[in-house]
Nucleic acid binder design. Structure first.
Lengths: 248, 248
DNA sequence: GAATATTTGTTCAAATATAATCAAAATCAA
DNA sequence: TTGATTTTGATTATATTTGAACAAATATTC
């Protein structure tokens, strides 16, 4: 059987069912899986179907929802508590940086009516703040699909062109001994750049991250001006002694 | 037996069965396979059948129906037609610019499986291409809420840092006398910048925009390398004479 | 986040189809 | 009939398609 006729059969199945996996197509078209894969690759290159891992979908169904939620879903109340505290610090007219931390993105809901300019590398932040009172400056560069954020050299250069009043940043770990740490080099780079181009650096940090170290130590404690957290224990005292303002 | 009578038999078999392979035809027509091949080549050249590897298909079966799904609006269908043509021009490994034109954004659905880098200022494009095989470079700058796109000086500078293979652009009007025109200065600025930093400029332009002028004339016809359109009339001839490749 | 299971990309060899070349057969004109 | 022309078939070389095996990439599971 020729590619042409297999193509027609595959197309028909995929259009009727919406999606189909390779095994199923191989059975129905009566050929091997490898041949189906090759056909699907050709058809996808022609824009006839959307190739998925393990099969194919019709184009109209191939809208992949951004799965950012699951990361946020952990500790929502804590994050919202922190975000609310941080939002109170923002004044109309402020120019602020927001990075792609999950706590930082919870800030959006509380600032939609503020007359401020937000400079951000985070797509979820952009989506949530677009068509609000907030004016948005999007940081350009390579998009990291997993994090739904822009990273890289170009992004850092973009940040350096701006001077902001406040930076609202997230980290993966913070400790007295090792300062700020992250599990992604690219995120750390952005965080550092934002911090150094803002008059005041706010670190949004839930209790699970306090006293923790991640593999990449990227900045000393001294870059932090304000630590916003839900933690209330005297674990915070040393940070305060260090000169960091605590908001909780 | 003459070619004429074999032709009739072959045509009858292919029409009845939808498809047939060379071996089968050779048996039924009582001739050698090589003769069948020669006949099929002639018939295919005359557009009587569709030649496949190993045989032949009925033409109507070999053509992909324009739209399998419920009829979408005629306007969308036109744009999708243009977008599909444009998508076929894109090769794996290409670096392409996409602006915030409405036809341009219809391109997304057809290129999700391509291994390319897309540099764009359009949020809908980013949204539709994120989590696909396409690698995205987001142009930074001020976000225009109404257009869901990034504009301005910073954006233009961002574009200037990149050299792309192809630019896929939309306009609001194009005419022989006045070249390209737009209704937004900011969009025009982006379009111009993308065009001058791409080796080839593809203009995606439905028939309603051909021969029309909008208030802002911003670029001469000469920046266009390829005009992709659904228009088929000889209205296109002058553009072709001008040296523009027409894709329709 | 690490370990496991799937899926995919790649390479290779076998099967199949096509193209090219040339000789044989059929057709046609005198 | 003869010779020229066209068509057909056989043979060989080339190209394409296919499937198998394995390494790499990607989901999935806990």
């Amino acid at each position: 059987m020729s590619y042409q006729s297999r193509k027609q059969k595959i197309l028909k199945i995929v259009e009727e069912q919406g999606e189909a996996d390779v095994k199923e197509l191989a059975q129905k078209v009566e050929t091997s899986e490898i041949t189906i894969r090759r056909d699907l690759a050709l058809m996808a290159a022609d824009g006839l179907i959307f190739r998925t891992h393990g099969g194919a979908m019709k184009l109209s169904l191939a809208i992949i929802p951004v799965s950012f939620e699951h990361k946020i879903s952990a500790n929502i109340e804590q994050k919202d508590y922190i975000a609310r505290l941080a939002a109170k610090e923002i004044r109309d007219g402020d120019i602020i940086f927001m990075d792609c931390g999950s706590t930082v993105s919870r800030l959006c809901q509380f600032i939609k009516n503020k007359r401020i300019k937000v400079i951000t590398n985070s797509l979820p932040v952009v989506y949530e703040l677009s068509n609000t009172e907030v004016s948005i400056n999007l940081i350009g560069g390579e998009l990291d699909n997993k994090r739904q954020a822009v990273h890289g050299q170009i992004a850092v250069e973009h940040i350096r062109r701006y001077q902001a009043d406040k930076a609202f940043l997230g980290v993966d770990g913070i400790s007295l001994e090792n300062g700020l740490s992250a599990s992604s080099e690219k995120e750390a780079e952005i965080t550092t750049a934002m911090s150094s181009n803002a008059r005041q650096t706010y670190l949004l940090c839930d209790s699970s991250k306090l006293g923790k170290d991640k593999y990449l130590k990227f900045a000393p404690l001294s870059i932090v001006d304000v630590l916003v957290t839900n933690e209330v224990s005297d674990q915070l005292k040393p940070y305060q002694d260090f000169g960091i303002r605590i908001l909780n």
